[in-house]
Protein backbone atom coordinates (compact mmCIF):
# COMPACT_ATOMS: atom_id res chain seq x y z
CA UNK A 1 0.00 0.00 0.00
CA UNK A 2 2.84 2.35 0.87
CA UNK A 3 4.49 1.63 -2.45
CA UNK A 4 1.25 2.43 -4.27
CA UNK A 5 0.92 5.63 -2.27
CA UNK A 6 4.46 6.68 -3.11
CA UNK A 7 3.88 5.98 -6.76
CA UNK A 8 0.78 8.13 -6.76
CA UNK A 9 2.63 10.85 -4.92
CA UNK A 10 5.58 10.97 -7.23
CA UNK A 11 4.43 10.21 -10.71
CA UNK A 12 1.07 8.69 -11.60
CA UNK A 13 -2.31 10.27 -12.20
CA UNK A 14 -0.83 13.16 -14.07
CA UNK A 15 -3.77 13.66 -16.34
CA UNK A 16 -6.41 13.36 -13.69
CA UNK A 17 -4.63 15.98 -11.69
CA UNK A 18 -4.29 18.33 -14.58
CA UNK A 19 -7.48 17.89 -16.56
CA UNK A 20 -9.48 21.07 -16.69
CA UNK A 21 -12.67 22.46 -18.10
CA UNK A 22 -12.27 23.21 -21.77
CA UNK A 23 -14.89 25.16 -23.56
CA UNK A 24 -15.40 26.76 -26.94
CA UNK A 25 -12.43 28.92 -27.82
CA UNK A 26 -10.66 28.27 -24.56
CA UNK A 27 -7.05 27.11 -24.63
CA UNK A 28 -6.43 23.38 -24.98
CA UNK A 29 -4.52 22.87 -21.72
CA UNK A 30 -4.99 26.14 -19.88
CA UNK A 31 -8.11 27.62 -18.39
CA UNK A 32 -10.16 30.07 -20.46
CA UNK A 33 -13.06 32.39 -19.61
CA UNK A 34 -15.77 30.96 -21.86
CA UNK A 35 -19.21 30.11 -20.55
CA UNK A 36 -22.15 28.54 -22.35
CA UNK A 37 -25.23 30.48 -23.47
CA UNK A 38 -28.27 30.35 -21.19
CA UNK A 39 -30.19 27.10 -21.61
CA UNK A 40 -27.45 25.70 -23.83
CA UNK A 41 -26.17 22.16 -23.46
CA UNK A 42 -22.68 21.01 -24.29
CA UNK A 43 -21.59 17.45 -24.96
CA UNK A 44 -17.87 16.98 -24.76
CA UNK A 45 -15.71 13.94 -25.40
CA UNK A 46 -12.02 14.14 -24.60
CA UNK A 47 -9.05 11.86 -25.01
CA UNK A 48 -5.83 12.46 -23.07
CA UNK A 49 -2.55 10.62 -23.37
CA UNK A 50 0.36 11.19 -21.05
CA UNK A 51 3.82 9.67 -20.86
CA UNK A 52 6.48 10.30 -18.24
CA UNK A 53 9.23 7.67 -18.25
CA UNK A 54 7.59 4.33 -17.55
CA UNK A 55 4.31 5.92 -16.53
CA UNK A 56 1.80 5.88 -19.33
CA UNK A 57 -1.86 6.66 -19.04
CA UNK A 58 -4.84 7.31 -21.26
CA UNK A 59 -7.95 9.04 -20.02
CA UNK A 60 -11.20 9.29 -21.98
CA UNK A 61 -13.66 11.78 -20.57
CA UNK A 62 -17.34 12.41 -21.16
CA UNK A 63 -18.46 15.86 -20.08
CA UNK A 64 -21.87 17.47 -20.00
CA UNK A 65 -22.35 21.18 -19.40
CA UNK A 66 -25.38 23.41 -19.03
CA UNK A 67 -25.68 27.18 -19.30
CA UNK A 68 -27.49 28.37 -16.18
CA UNK A 69 -27.25 31.96 -17.41
CA UNK A 70 -25.23 33.60 -20.17
CA UNK A 71 -22.39 33.97 -17.67
CA UNK A 72 -22.69 30.87 -15.51
CA UNK A 73 -22.06 27.27 -16.54
CA UNK A 74 -22.28 24.01 -14.59
CA UNK A 75 -20.54 20.85 -15.70
CA UNK A 76 -20.09 17.20 -14.82
CA UNK A 77 -17.15 15.08 -15.97
CA UNK A 78 -16.86 11.31 -16.05
CA UNK A 79 -13.40 9.99 -16.92
CA UNK A 80 -12.45 6.47 -17.96
CA UNK A 81 -8.94 5.57 -16.87
CA UNK A 82 -6.48 3.29 -18.64
CA UNK A 83 -3.21 2.84 -16.69
CA UNK A 84 -0.73 0.01 -16.43
CA UNK A 85 -0.97 -0.51 -12.69
CA UNK A 86 -4.72 -0.60 -12.05
CA UNK A 87 -7.68 -2.23 -13.81
CA UNK A 88 -9.19 -0.02 -16.49
CA UNK A 89 -12.46 1.60 -15.57
CA UNK A 90 -14.40 4.66 -14.57
CA UNK A 91 -12.36 7.04 -12.47
CA UNK A 92 -13.33 9.88 -10.13
CA UNK A 93 -16.15 12.00 -11.46
CA UNK A 94 -15.96 15.76 -11.12
CA UNK A 95 -18.37 18.64 -10.92
CA UNK A 96 -17.30 22.11 -11.99
CA UNK A 97 -18.68 25.56 -12.43
CA UNK A 98 -17.54 28.74 -14.14
CA UNK A 99 -18.85 32.23 -13.53
CA UNK A 100 -17.98 35.10 -15.84
CA UNK A 101 -17.90 38.09 -13.51
CA UNK A 102 -16.62 40.68 -15.98
CA UNK A 103 -17.13 41.19 -19.68
CA UNK A 104 -16.40 44.04 -22.11
CA UNK A 105 -17.80 43.73 -25.62
CA UNK A 106 -17.00 45.87 -28.63
CA UNK A 107 -17.26 45.32 -32.38
CA UNK A 108 -15.74 41.88 -33.05
CA UNK A 109 -13.99 41.80 -29.68
CA UNK A 110 -14.83 40.22 -26.37
CA UNK A 111 -12.77 40.56 -23.19
CA UNK A 112 -13.84 38.68 -20.11
CA UNK A 113 -12.79 37.24 -16.79
CA UNK A 114 -14.08 34.11 -15.16
CA UNK A 115 -13.89 32.44 -11.77
CA UNK A 116 -13.70 28.68 -11.76
CA UNK A 117 -14.30 25.94 -9.20
CA UNK A 118 -13.98 22.23 -9.66
CA UNK A 119 -14.49 19.51 -7.06
CA UNK A 120 -13.41 15.93 -7.56
CA UNK A 121 -14.74 13.61 -4.86
CA UNK A 122 -13.32 10.14 -4.32
CA UNK A 123 -15.84 8.13 -6.34
CA UNK A 124 -13.68 5.58 -8.16
CA UNK A 125 -13.00 2.04 -7.03
CA UNK A 126 -10.17 -0.50 -7.54
CA UNK A 127 -7.41 2.02 -6.81
CA UNK A 128 -8.43 4.19 -9.73
CA UNK A 129 -8.55 7.93 -9.23
CA UNK A 130 -6.62 9.74 -6.54
CA UNK A 131 -8.38 8.29 -3.51
CA UNK A 132 -9.08 11.78 -2.21
CA UNK A 133 -11.45 14.66 -2.56
CA UNK A 134 -9.63 17.44 -4.41
CA UNK A 135 -10.68 20.87 -5.53
CA UNK A 136 -9.38 23.47 -7.95
CA UNK A 137 -9.93 27.21 -7.80
CA UNK A 138 -9.04 29.32 -10.79
CA UNK A 139 -9.22 32.73 -12.42
CA UNK A 140 -9.02 33.29 -16.16
CA UNK A 141 -8.83 36.34 -18.40
CA UNK A 142 -9.35 36.30 -22.15
CA UNK A 143 -9.15 38.75 -25.04
CA UNK A 144 -10.73 37.47 -28.25
CA UNK A 145 -10.96 39.35 -31.52
CA UNK A 146 -11.66 38.31 -35.07
CA UNK A 147 -7.94 37.72 -35.56
CA UNK A 148 -6.02 37.63 -32.27
CA UNK A 149 -6.52 35.78 -29.02
CA UNK A 150 -4.75 36.01 -25.71
CA UNK A 151 -5.49 34.38 -22.39
CA UNK A 152 -3.97 34.24 -18.92
CA UNK A 153 -5.02 32.03 -16.05
CA UNK A 154 -3.99 30.85 -12.64
CA UNK A 155 -5.29 27.79 -10.86
CA UNK A 156 -4.61 26.27 -7.48
CA UNK A 157 -5.34 22.66 -6.75
CA UNK A 158 -6.00 21.62 -3.15
CA UNK A 159 -5.33 17.90 -2.79
CA UNK A 160 -6.93 15.89 -0.02
CA UNK A 161 -5.40 13.14 2.10
CA UNK A 162 -5.90 9.46 1.35
CA UNK A 163 -7.11 6.88 3.86
CA UNK A 164 -3.51 5.65 4.21
CA UNK A 165 -2.32 9.13 5.21
CA UNK A 166 -0.84 10.21 1.91
CA UNK A 167 -1.14 13.95 1.40
CA UNK A 168 -0.25 14.75 -2.20
CA UNK A 169 1.27 18.17 -2.62
CA UNK A 170 -0.96 21.00 -3.74
CA UNK A 171 -0.38 22.34 -7.21
CA UNK A 172 -0.19 25.83 -8.71
CA UNK A 173 -0.82 26.11 -12.44
CA UNK A 174 -0.13 29.16 -14.59
CA UNK A 175 -1.12 29.56 -18.24
CA UNK A 176 -0.18 32.20 -20.80
CA UNK A 177 -1.66 31.66 -24.24
CA UNK A 178 -1.73 33.37 -27.61
CA UNK A 179 -3.87 32.47 -30.61
CA UNK A 180 -4.45 33.59 -34.16
CA UNK A 181 -7.13 33.12 -36.78
CA UNK A 182 -5.31 33.56 -40.10
CA UNK A 183 -8.52 33.68 -42.13
CA UNK A 184 -11.55 35.46 -40.72
CA UNK A 185 -14.28 32.93 -41.50
CA UNK A 186 -17.93 33.82 -41.95
CA UNK A 187 -20.49 32.41 -39.54
CA UNK A 188 -21.29 29.17 -41.36
CA UNK A 189 -17.79 28.52 -42.71
CA UNK A 190 -15.22 26.19 -41.16
CA UNK A 191 -13.03 28.15 -38.77
CA UNK A 192 -9.44 27.53 -37.69
CA UNK A 193 -7.65 29.01 -34.68
CA UNK A 194 -4.00 28.23 -33.94
CA UNK A 195 -2.74 28.54 -30.39
CA UNK A 196 0.52 28.44 -28.50
CA UNK A 197 0.44 27.94 -24.75
CA UNK A 198 3.01 28.26 -22.02
CA UNK A 199 1.88 26.12 -19.09
CA UNK A 200 3.68 26.12 -15.76
CA UNK A 201 3.10 23.71 -12.88
CA UNK A 202 4.57 24.01 -9.41
CA UNK A 203 3.81 21.09 -7.11
CA UNK A 204 4.48 21.02 -3.37
CA UNK A 205 6.14 17.99 -1.81
CA UNK A 206 3.81 15.19 -0.84
CA UNK A 207 3.70 13.85 2.70
CA UNK A 208 3.14 10.34 4.01
CA UNK A 209 2.01 10.22 7.64
CA UNK A 210 3.41 13.70 8.10
CA UNK A 211 6.82 12.91 6.59
CA UNK A 212 7.82 14.72 3.42
CA UNK A 213 8.49 12.48 0.44
CA UNK A 214 11.78 13.35 -1.21
CA UNK A 215 10.85 12.11 -4.66
CA UNK A 216 7.86 14.37 -5.07
CA UNK A 217 6.99 17.90 -6.03
CA UNK A 218 8.84 20.34 -8.22
CA UNK A 219 8.28 22.53 -11.22
CA UNK A 220 7.62 21.82 -14.88
CA UNK A 221 7.05 24.17 -17.81
CA UNK A 222 5.48 23.16 -21.10
CA UNK A 223 5.20 24.76 -24.51
CA UNK A 224 1.98 23.60 -26.09
CA UNK A 225 0.95 24.16 -29.69
CA UNK A 226 -2.75 23.61 -30.27
CA UNK A 227 -5.41 23.87 -32.93
CA UNK A 228 -9.13 24.39 -32.91
CA UNK A 229 -11.44 23.68 -35.83
CA UNK A 230 -15.10 24.58 -35.66
CA UNK A 231 -18.16 24.44 -37.87
CA UNK A 232 -21.24 26.17 -36.51
CA UNK A 233 -21.94 24.25 -33.26
CA UNK A 234 -19.30 21.53 -33.54
CA UNK A 235 -15.63 21.81 -32.54
CA UNK A 236 -12.53 19.65 -32.66
CA UNK A 237 -9.55 20.71 -30.57
CA UNK A 238 -6.15 19.15 -30.26
CA UNK A 239 -2.77 19.99 -28.79
CA UNK A 240 0.39 18.57 -27.31
CA UNK A 241 2.31 19.68 -24.21
CA UNK A 242 6.05 19.49 -24.67
CA UNK A 243 8.29 19.96 -21.62
CA UNK A 244 10.72 22.84 -21.97
CA UNK A 245 11.99 23.16 -18.39
CA UNK A 246 11.86 20.82 -15.45
CA UNK A 247 13.03 21.01 -11.86
CA UNK A 248 11.59 18.00 -10.07
CA UNK A 249 12.65 17.05 -6.54
CA UNK A 250 14.59 13.84 -6.01
CA UNK A 251 14.29 10.98 -8.45
CA UNK A 252 11.19 11.43 -10.58
CA UNK A 253 10.37 10.76 -14.21
CA UNK A 254 10.07 13.97 -16.15
CA UNK A 255 7.12 14.35 -18.49
CA UNK A 256 7.80 13.20 -22.04
CA UNK A 257 4.63 14.67 -23.52
CA UNK A 258 0.92 15.10 -22.95
CA UNK A 259 -1.51 15.05 -25.83
CA UNK A 260 -5.18 15.98 -25.93
CA UNK A 261 -7.99 15.55 -28.45
CA UNK A 262 -11.44 17.04 -27.83
CA UNK A 263 -14.82 16.91 -29.57
CA UNK A 264 -17.47 19.39 -28.54
CA UNK A 265 -21.09 19.95 -29.54
CA UNK A 266 -23.25 22.86 -28.46
CA UNK A 267 -26.95 22.03 -28.48
Amino acid sequence: MKRQALRIASSGLLLLLNSTVLQAHDPIFGLGPHTLFKGGTEVHIGLDRNEAGNNKETISTLELAYGLTGNWTARIELPYEDRDDVPNGVSDMSVATKYRFWRRDSLGVQESSTAFLKVKPDTASNNRGSGTTDSILGLAYGYESRKWYRWAAVRYRFNGETSDNLDRGDKLLIDLVGGIRFKQSAYLEPDWVWMLELNGEKTSRSELSGNKIGDSGGTEWFLSPGLMWTLRNFAIKTGVQLPVASDLNGNQDESDYRARLEFEWHL
Binding site: A24, H25, H34, R103, D105, S106, L107, G108, V109, Q110, E144, S145, R146, R181, S185, A186, Y187, L188, E189, D191, V193, T230, R232, N233, A235, H266
Partner: peptide, 9 residues
Protein backbone atom coordinates in the same frame (compact mmCIF):
# COMPACT_ATOMS: atom_id res chain seq x y z
CA UNK B 1 -20.87 43.59 -29.77
CA UNK B 2 -18.55 40.76 -28.75
CA UNK B 3 -19.05 38.55 -31.81
CA UNK B 4 -15.49 37.39 -32.36
CA UNK B 5 -15.86 33.75 -33.35
CA UNK B 6 -18.40 31.71 -35.33
CA UNK B 7 -18.59 28.88 -32.79
CA UNK B 8 -19.50 31.26 -29.97
CA UNK B 9 -22.08 33.05 -32.14
Amino acid sequence: DGLSCPFCA
